[in-house]
């Protein structure tokens, strides 16, 4: 059985910390084809609904003096807009909707994943690698379109001694291609680890003696996860801006 593989039986305690990450079809059936409506679909749709509620319905009154919901929308707008402008430069502002999309999706997916019994879409490498590859491809394409071959100057550290430059170039190229890996694994890894740890603590709650401690630990972890949910979204977004800056201004 599938869950047996994940559940480690130890003296009556059952741990299934990874079961929460299983993708399941919502309307029965065994096969998961690319178009199957699954819990992934559900929770991503909820993220879309949440974002729409916050950014569209919340701002629908277009009030000069904003309501609370409108303030939140404006705050999110200002936060990411300023980040793009400060980190990636003024000419990166045309990528603002794209970066805003990434940030809003990740932050909503992370926080929706904190609801009990929910499914966390950003805990899957398939999702975060897709996000990171989108950024990587965009940045590379923009870099070459904007700067042509000069974009390769990103790898040629002109401030280093000439003898060192080829070695540095190799290191730079490797680090450039490692970017999407670290970019994606950082997000999914953080989210997955936190959720799994909470599940492990929850597993211990079956023992009456340790259950109070377990609840305290879950509460503490949950608090940490709230921080992680936001910080990882922030980190992903700001790294996107940093990479974009490299594409727009490749000189060191």
């Amino acid at each position: 059985m599938a869950s047996e593989a994940q559940g480690a039986k130890e003296g009556g305690l059952e741990f299934h910390p990874m079961d929460q990450f299983i993708v399941k079809p919502l309307f029965g059936g065994d096969e998961i084809a690319w178009y199957t409506i699954t819990n992934v679909t559900l929770w991503m749709a909820l993220a879309v609904i949440g974002i729409t509620a916050m950014m569209v319905i919340g701002t629908s009154r277009r009030a000069m003096i904003p309501s609370r919901s409108q303030s939140i929308g404006e705050l999110a707008y200002g936060f990411i807009y300023k980040m793009v402008e400060d980190v990636a430069g003024k000419d990166a502002v045309k990528f603002f909707p794209y970066i805003m999309t990434l940030f809003m999706f990740i932050v909503f997916a992370n926080f929706l994943g904190l609801l009990p019994m929910s499914f966390t879409t950003t805990s899957h490498f398939a999702v975060t690698i897709t996000l990171a590859l989108l950024v990587f491809v965009t940045v590379t394409v923009v870099g070459f379109v904007k700067n042509g071959a000069a974009f390769l100057g990103l790898f040629w550290v002109s401030s280093a001694p000439l003898a060192l430059r080829p070695i540095l170039a190799v290191i730079e190229v490797i680090s450039y291609f490692v970017r999407p890996v670290s970019h994606s694994i950082r997000l999914a890894g953080n989210v997955m680890a936190g959720h799994a740890v909470i599940k492990v603590f929850a597993g211990f709650a079956a023992l009456a003696v340790v259950s109070p401690l377990s609840i305290v630990a879950i509460t503490a972890m949950y608090g940490l996860e709230v921080l992680v949910a936001f910080i990882q979204a922030y980190v992903f977004t700001i790294l996107t801006c940093v990479y974009l800056k490299d594409a727009l201004h490749p000189s060191h």
Binding site: V23, I32, A33, W34, Y35, T36, T38, V40, T41, M44, A45, A47, V48, I51, T52, M55, V56, P97, Y98, M100, T101, L102, M104, F105, T121, H124, A126, V127, T130, L131, L134
Partner: peptide, 21 residues
């Protein structure tokens, strides 16, 4: 799981992008 996730992610991102932009 991968194909399913990537597909729905792309759909989601496109929808969010259009709603936002």
């Amino acid at each position: 799981f991968w194909g399913n996730q990537v597909f729905w992610l792309l759909v989601t991102l496109v929808v969010i992008y259009f709603v936002l932009s």
